[in-house]
């Protein structure tokens, strides 16, 4: 077995996995709190990439240096996506809080289609080139052919964000309120937690993280298109399910697991069936272990 090839696949899987994990966090947090698969989450990621593109384009013509453009593009796109996430929740999910399971799900699919077509309408339906914003790091020179600086940055940024989020959930008051709401919303409300606010914050955080993923991956790949959110969304959801939906460390683990298995699957078996691989994993997991790697089996009480 070729060791270098193995490492190459491993590292590319790591990059993919980190992005999946970043997006998966949004799914898993929302699911943990309101038990809804937020289909529009993939679209938030796509909108993040587009916003990043626009910011980078404006700053680029103004002659900003590359690192500044990257940082500003990520930050602005995080803010905007947070706004989108917040607004989407208010329009499509909040009025349906009392309305069974099927209605919010269909509303979410509608929202996802809406956002895709919104981007087609106001931007374009073609692939748009995305400038390479990530600078080349000198210390990565010797291994640049298997682990480029964009890969490095994606992995590092994701790791930092996820660590930050874990600390936030664990130690801040808001984090505590989120955990309480996820456990039992009614009880949390009785104890004076503003559940609507918690839900809004959940959407905001999840969307901002998806935006980071969107900008970084768009810069890494060099292309954006209105449809990128769909595949990324399903894969991130797969990651969330693999890890155990509702569980934060589960989403991270699931993301890495999915990224690595996709990379190895494509490298050693067949790259044609790369996506089939992810979907099959999803189906197999949902059938045999719907609670995921980290999740606990839920007993439904009557």
């Amino acid at each position: 077995m070729d060791v270098q090839y193995f490492f190459e696949l491993f590292l590319s899987g790591l990059t993919r996995g980190s992005i999946y994990a970043l997006i998966a966090i949004g799914y898993t947090m929302v699911y943990g709190i309101i038990e809804l698969i937020n289909f529009a989450h993939g679209e938030i990621y796509m909108i993040g990439a587009f916003t990043g593109l626009i910011v980078a384009g404006i700053l680029g013509t103004m002659g900003f240096p590359l690192p500044a453009i990257l940082v500003l593009a990520v930050l602005v796109s995080m803010i905007y996506c947070a706004g989108y996430g917040y607004t989407i929740e208010k329009i499509a999910y909040k009025p349906l809080r009392q309305a069974g399971r099927l209605s919010p799900l269909i509303s979410a699919i509608g929202m996802s289609l809406f956002l895709q077509n919104y981007v087609i309408l106001v931007q374009t339906s073609d692939f748009v080139p995305f400038p390479s914003l990530i600078p080349e790091f000198a210390f990565l020179e010797p291994i640049a052919h298997i682990f480029a600086s964009s890969d490095f940055l994606i992995v590092v940024v994701s790791a930092v964000l996820m660590a930050g989020l874990t600390l936030f959930i664990k130690y801040t008051k808001m984090g505590k309120a989120m955990r309480a709401t996820a456990q039992n919303r009614k009880m949390a409300m009785l104890l004076g937690i503003d559940a609507d606010r918690v839900i809004s914050v959940t959407f905001i955080i999840g969307s901002a993280l998806a935006a980071v993923g969107g900008v970084l991956i768009a810069s890494h790949v060099g292309m954006v298109n209105f449809a990128i959110g769909f595949l990324a969304g399903i894969k991130a959801f797969t990651a969330a399910v693999l890890g155990g939906i509702g569980s934060l460390p589960g989403a991270m683990l699931g993301g890495l697991f999915l990224g690595l298995s996709e990379s190895f699957g494509a490298g050693y078996i067949s790259s044609d069936y790369e996506d089939v691989f992810a979907f099959s994993l999803l189906v197999i997991f949902l059938i045999f272990r719907p609670s995921g790697i980290m999740g606990k089996a839920k007993v439904e009480k009557v």
């Binding site: 399910v241 979907f279 999803l282 189906v283 949902l286």
Partner: peptide
């Protein structure tokens, strides 16, 4: 997939469609 709840079922069928 019969054991699955509504939203999981939605995702599995979506995955199947894509496969």
């Amino acid at each position: 997939v019969l054991r699955l709840r509504g939203d999981y079922l939605a995702i599995v069928t979506l995955g199947f469609g894509e496969i």
